[in-house]
Simulated assay, not measured.
Amino acid sequence: MRTTPPARPSDDAPAPRWPVMLETPGWRDFALLDSGHGRKLERYGPYRIVRPEAQALWSPRLGEAEWERADAVFTGGKDEEADGRWRYRTPLPETWPMRWRWPDGEVKFLGRFTAFRHVGFFPEQETHWIWFSKLIRDARRPLKVLNLFGYTGIASFVAASAGAQVTHVDASKKAVGWARENQALSGMEELPVRWIVDDAMKFVEREVRRGNRYDGIILDPPKFGRGPKGEVWDIFEHLPEMMRLCRALLSDRALFLLISAYSIRASFMAVHELTAEVLSGLTGTLESGELLIREEGGGRALSTSLFSRWSAGGV
């Protein structure tokens, strides 16, 4: 049963809305074909790949022959942050072009087989991309957006395409380089995106001291990570302080704040209650729940991450 709490506990807090389940059915260059027995079979552009998926407790719908047709299978690396290796049915290029279209534009980007099982983007995030793109466009005023843990840049391109000036921060020089490759591939070199290679916590601490403010903030932190100078990030240890710093960075006319959390042993309510506490004093709407990917053909839904997102004007 889906339940919803009271609309608003007080006049100076965002109206809570939970649980919110946001689904991605896939698109031309991406589909979840099947899942089960701790694995998932996906299509990324022209390639079918198999990756571990601990939450797929059920049995696959497709026969084993369909799974054996996969072009690449990730092995080893039982944990999301652990390295593993890819096994290829035939030789494949290291990268390949992909694209995602939304009502206001198109982003092109490179898929890549990485040592930590990911391929360069998280397709379930498209529901968030569409959400904040509309918020930015409908604001009809200059906006500054901060994208922390920005990875390969798709969220930054969507926000900038909608009209925002974007500051993209990631501790990985390689990831920022990949994002700039994607920017060139999309023909978006003129978009107002500022690229920063830095530890996210140190960056926001400096921004608070400088008195800089942002109208929208996107956070997509890993469970564990390291900064360019060996700084350690642990989501359970450092997220509360990161969220408090982000609250200090919100402008007086802030539009939104979005946080996603992957591969953590926690309920979405943990992220929701932290976000609600940090945003106390603001009005608007705070939605929290899970991101889901629906199997192709309307099959089962696979939960991939937790999220909380606040918008000043509701949804």
Rank of each mutant, 00 (worst) to 15 (best):
T3R: 13
T4A: 12
A7H: 12
P9V: 11
S10D: 06
P14V: 04
A15I: 05
P16A: 07
M21V: 10
E23W: 03
T24Q: 11
P25H: 02
D29T: 08
D29R: 04
L33S: 03
D34F: 03
S35V: 00
G36K: 06
H37M: 12
K40I: 13
E53N: 10
A54I: 15
A54Y: 11
Q55Y: 12
L57K: 12
S59M: 13
R61W: 08
R61I: 08
R61F: 08
A65I: 08
A70H: 10
A70D: 12
A70P: 10
A70Y: 08
V73K: 08
V73L: 11
W86N: 09
W86A: 09
R89H: 04
T90F: 09
T90P: 00
P93I: 02
W96K: 04
R99F: 09
R101I: 11
W102R: 07
F113Q: 03
T114W: 02
G120V: 04
P123L: 02
E124L: 01
E126H: 12
I130N: 09
I130H: 12
S133V: 03
K134Y: 07
I136G: 10
I136H: 10
L143W: 02
L146T: 06
L146I: 06
F149V: 05
F149P: 03
A155G: 14
A155F: 03
V158P: 00
A159T: 05
A159S: 11
G163D: 10
A164D: 08
Q165C: 13
V169Y: 01
K174R: 13
A175S: 15
N182Y: 03
Q183N: 09
S186E: 09
M188L: 14
L191A: 13
L191Y: 12
I196T: 08
A200P: 04
F203C: 05
F203G: 01
R206C: 04
E207V: 05
E207S: 13
E207D: 10
V208C: 11
V208I: 14
R209A: 14
R210W: 09
N212Y: 12
R213F: 07
P221L: 00
F224A: 07
F224C: 02
G225P: 07
G225N: 15
G227W: 06
K229M: 06
K229T: 07
W233N: 00
H238P: 00
L239H: 08
E241Q: 15
R244Y: 07
C246Q: 05
C246H: 06
A248P: 03
S251V: 10
L255F: 01
L258S: 15
A270S: 05
A270T: 07
V271T: 08
H272L: 09
L274M: 15
L279G: 04
L279N: 05
S280C: 01
G281T: 10
L282F: 10
T283M: 04
T285E: 15
T285H: 09
E287P: 00
E295V: 12
E296W: 13
G297M: 07
G299Q: 12
R300L: 15
L302Q: 07
T304D: 03
L306H: 14
L306M: 11
S308R: 01
R309K: 06
W310Y: 11
V315K: 09
